[in-house]
Amino acid sequence: MSSSDRATNPTPPQSGPRATYPTEQSPQSRRRWFIAASIGVVIAGLIVAFLGFRSFGDPDISGSATGYDVISPDTIAVQYTVNRKDPSHAVACVVRGRAQDGSEVGRREVLIPASRDVQVGARTEVRTSREAVIGEVFGCTGNVPAYLKPID
């Protein structure tokens, strides 16, 4: 048997250190793993970025209180602005009054009709069950309930 016969038909050793420890990977194999792992990390990063933007990006509709006035122990007036990307659609907002302990003491749903303006200011009076110390906009939505739609 010549040395050239061994090179053409290599057989793994049955015992010893070479049988226990795997042989080293080729540079091409390590490069493939690195490229695959890099692509996986980039794809995972893009997915996280997309979900974060969808959750925390600018909403299509938003409302925020700009001021309030306690009119009486059972009424508070809230001034607020509504921003919407598409002003041709009506918006429903929930405006509420809160007591000193933070509990909600009055709530009112308000229809903001369609207009030409992206930002609209409004003022709403909210009846309360006891004295309110602050008025705020709880939230706004484009899903206007049927009972808030104006009569044609």
Score class of each variant (00 low, 15 high):
Gln100Met: 12
Thr23Pro: 09
Ser2Asn: 09
Val94Tyr: 01
Arg54His: 07
Asp74Ser: 08
Cys140Asn: 07
Ile151Gln: 15
Gln14Trp: 02
Ala37Tyr: 00
Ser62Val: 06
Val144Pro: 12
Tyr80Arg: 00
Ile71Asn: 11
Gly139Gln: 13
Ala90Asn: 06
Gly57Leu: 14
Asn9Trp: 05
Cys93Leu: 08
Ala37Leu: 13
Ser15Asn: 09
Leu46Glu: 00
Ala19Gly: 02
Asn143Trp: 11
Thr124Lys: 11
Lys149Val: 11
Gly106Leu: 00
Arg31Met: 13
Ser115Lys: 10
Arg6Cys: 05
Met1Val: 09
Gly121Pro: 07
Val41Asn: 01
Ile76Tyr: 03
Val137Trp: 11
Thr23Ala: 15
Pro59Lys: 09
Ala44Cys: 09
Ala7Asn: 09
Ile76Thr: 02
Asn83Cys: 01
Gly142Ser: 14
Tyr147Pro: 02
Cys93Ala: 08
Arg127Pro: 06
Ala44Leu: 15
Val133His: 05
Gly63Ser: 06
Val144Gln: 15
Ile61Lys: 01
Ala99Lys: 02
Lys85Glu: 04
Ile35Thr: 05
Ser26Pro: 09
Val144Arg: 14
Ile35Arg: 09
Thr81Val: 15
Val95Lys: 03
Ala19Val: 03
Val95Thr: 06
Val94Phe: 02
Gly16Gln: 04
Asp117His: 13
Val91Pro: 04
Pro27Glu: 07
Val126Ala: 08
Ser4Ala: 14
Arg107Tyr: 02
Ser103Asp: 08
Arg32Ile: 10
Gly121Phe: 13
Thr11Arg: 15
Ser4Pro: 02
Gly139Asn: 08
Asn143Ala: 11
Ser103Tyr: 01
Ala65Gly: 11
Ile47Met: 07
Val91Glu: 05
Val82Ala: 05
Val144Met: 14
Ser129Phe: 00
Asp86Glu: 06
Glu136Val: 14
Ala90Trp: 00
Thr23Glu: 08
Ala114Tyr: 03
Pro73Thr: 06
Val41Glu: 04
Arg108Lys: 15
Ser129His: 03
Ile134Thr: 13
Val137Lys: 05
Pro150His: 08
Ser88His: 06
Gly52Glu: 10
Ala122Ser: 08
Thr141Tyr: 07
Arg108Ala: 10
Ser129Gln: 08
Ser4Leu: 15
Ile61Pro: 01
Ile39Trp: 05
Ala19Cys: 09
Cys93Gly: 10
Gln79Ser: 13
Ser103Thr: 05
Gln28His: 00
Gly135Ala: 12
Glu125Ser: 12
Pro13Ala: 13
Ser88Asn: 10
Ile39Cys: 10
